[in-house]
Amino acid sequence: MTFHRPITPEVVLRDLSRSFKGKTVLDRVSLEIPRGQFVALLGESGSGKTTLLRALAGLDDDAETAGHFQVAGSTSVLFQDSRLLPWMSVIGNVTLGLRRPDARAAALEMLGAVGLGDKTDVWPSTLSGGQKQRASLARSLLRAPDVLLADEPFGALDALTRLRMQALLLRLVERQRPTVILVTHDVEEALLLADRILVLKDGRIAEDHPVRMPQPRRVDHPEFAGLRQTLLSSLGVETEAV
């Protein structure tokens, strides 16, 4: 980046706790994320990743919540299931609720950028899983959010499609520079994409690793293997066996 960015944090959590029916899921989480940072959130299943993301997205506000959080700016959520409305064409889905005069032109441009230029007018049910997720990504990014909240957006895709989607996400994020919080199960995905990797454990942030490898990243970078080991063992996976 050549121009100067303010370093005021865009996402702030102060002792954020959240519980469902008395069961504590998030336990006094404190966190600051500077504007434009790409954060990956790792953690075992049930550790509260989705809960944290949904809190930031303003969902589940019926849960018992303590502490506070602040998101400066607009957010957009990328769900694991693409959540396209089946009764709307792809472009209708992508522009849904968009209040700008050039919505259609911008949507066409964005659909082109995600490789769906020839699918703008079809029903979502005719798309493959990867294409649906591209449409969903286009819908999110078209809003030019300040913060992109993504919950395992590529979790259901096959390995090859996932690699392509990761590259696509990286390309588009570099174009728009939103702050990104990406929940993932995939340590390698985190290592390939993120500037910073958090590990959530028992409702708290147990680890916080900066990732300084330059993009594009390669799995044979020395830092990659080391960090991968650290992360896997903190997720309770025996690295020898992997």
Binding site: A57, G58, L59, T75, S76, V77, F79, R83, L85, L96, G97, R139, R143
Partner: peptide, 8 residues
């Protein structure tokens, strides 16, 4: 939820 996050 989608409608909420899209601000409809």
């Amino acid at each position: 939820e989608l409608a909420r996050t899209l601000g409809l």
